[in-house]
Design a protein around this nucleic acid. Sequence first.
DNA 1: ACCATATTTGCATGGTTAGCTAAATACGCA
DNA 2: TGCGTATTTAGCTAACCATGCAAATATGGT
Lengths: 115, 115
Amino acid sequence: MQDHLTQTFAALADPTRRAMLARLATGPATVTELAEPFALALPTVSRHLKVLETAGLITREKSAQFRPCRLNATPLEEADTWLATYREFFSQRFDALDAQLKTMMAAKAQEEDKS
Amino acid sequence: MQDHLTQTFAALADPTRRAMLARLATGPATVTELAEPFALALPTVSRHLKVLETAGLITREKSAQFRPCRLNATPLEEADTWLATYREFFSQRFDALDAQLKTMMAAKAQEEDKS
DNA sequence: ACCATATTTGCATGGTTAGCTAAATACGCA
DNA sequence: TGCGTATTTAGCTAACCATGCAAATATGGT
């Protein structure tokens, strides 16, 4: 798994990890703090965090025996950039296009009725 | 895997599938057409497409023995909505916030010098 | 009905991942 | 130095996923 984007999306493809990011959006937290809302063993949490760290979605410090995590949204920005390419396909504009197409077709049909 | 978002992100966490979406952004295509740029066996391609279809990222028709695929960006819009929560953390704005914070702290320090 | 083309399904295999428990490591404090 | 807390590593299992090959299915044309 080389690709940055691939790693990011893979990291995001897990509700637990997304929840951790949501928690970190409110500020830094230790591993134990992050584990608390979940019914997960600490090693499991630790591994989730490693996935997030490898994807660059969090950074970690060494503060005594704590290893506080902090959100790093840079990869999210990359994901956002990737998504941007597809914005033109999001339903509303697509529907608008569709509506416009129908209007055009109706107009054309009228033209043909005349001839 | 129940979660919509989870499915979407999992589907996107593969370069082949992202490339297929990119291709479909230029218009509908058959399975064989989609397979062509890749050194993959057709069954493999077919399964990638099934992942995309299950995630709702593509829709398919039955046109003779062809099963043309079409991009459906709705799940991408959902992903975009999810990402939007984190836009405020994208580096530039974060840096700005950081700078503002420092200004405020400096101001407060001056206040305290007075007293 | 038969053949060619397009696509999917079944099966076997190898790799990946989430989760657990138990043990190891790292650090602060007494 | 020894104890307690925080966190990671090791080792395991079960579930899942990707992929290849071969066979099955679907459909159009002859």
